[in-house]
Amino acid sequence: MQSPLRTLILNLVTWTLVLLIAFPLLWMIITSVKPQTELFRIPPTWFPETITFEHYWRLLSETPFLTYFRNSVVLASTTTLFVVCLGTLGAYSLVRFRYRGRETLAMLVLFTYLLPSVVLIIPLYLMMVAIGLSNTLVSLILAHTTFALPYALWLLRSFMEGIPEDLESAALVDGASRMGAFRDIILPQLLPGIISTALFTFILSWNEYLYALVLVNSDSVAPLTTGVMSMLISTFNIEWSLLMAASVMMSLPLIIVFAFLQSYLTSGFGAGGVKG
């Protein structure tokens, strides 16, 4: 039995946490639709007296925001595609095939993940310059792939381990080739794993700042994170209203992706026709 006091305290703590986390997001949305005149009024208005979308309009029509946005979409999607393809095949190899150094290889991959990204960034930059990819979106895609892949590999490996080998054996006996069995049986079973890996990679790449700052320095290839910052934050002035509008629009794709895939993530688990 729970005492009413305990329930009360638990509720209080939970709601305090929720408010703490939600408030900046709420304030971001409110600020983005306030007219310029209302922005710095003291005391602040909790609800804008007039709602305006002029900041959004200015952002879309007068700034390179859309270019950044496109760059970010291309960057995050391509990285995700790379990571999921490589990660799935790599995890399959690590789980199904027996070869010398298999475990060492897996540990080594994880080891790169332990290094802070600042340690890797200079060598990566020099490499990109050497192969003539500096200041291109491709260099960012490759860089993001290198730091998202190790974790993805381990995540997919644990999902892959959950798929009984008998399923694949059955497909082989039923006449499928190894690739056929992989496509018909393994991939559908791995879908929840692939979706969570893709989600993780997309978010990581979408929010990444440091690599984008170092590897890319022209507006035409900058993603949202560095592009918006350099555009709206200068030494003398921060364009708060535009920044908030940009922030809202930057968050939207993630919220949409999450809203759609969340149910997918949970429903995929626990499905299985194997007993014993």
Binding site: P164, D166, L167, S169, A170, A171, V173, D184, I185, P188, Q189, A271, G272, G273, V274, K275, G276
Partner: peptide, 11 residues
């Protein structure tokens, strides 16, 4: 072949 786990394709 019939497997001990039946190995039916769950999807």
């Amino acid at each position: 072949m019939v497997f001990q786990s039946y190995a039916l394709y769950p999807h």
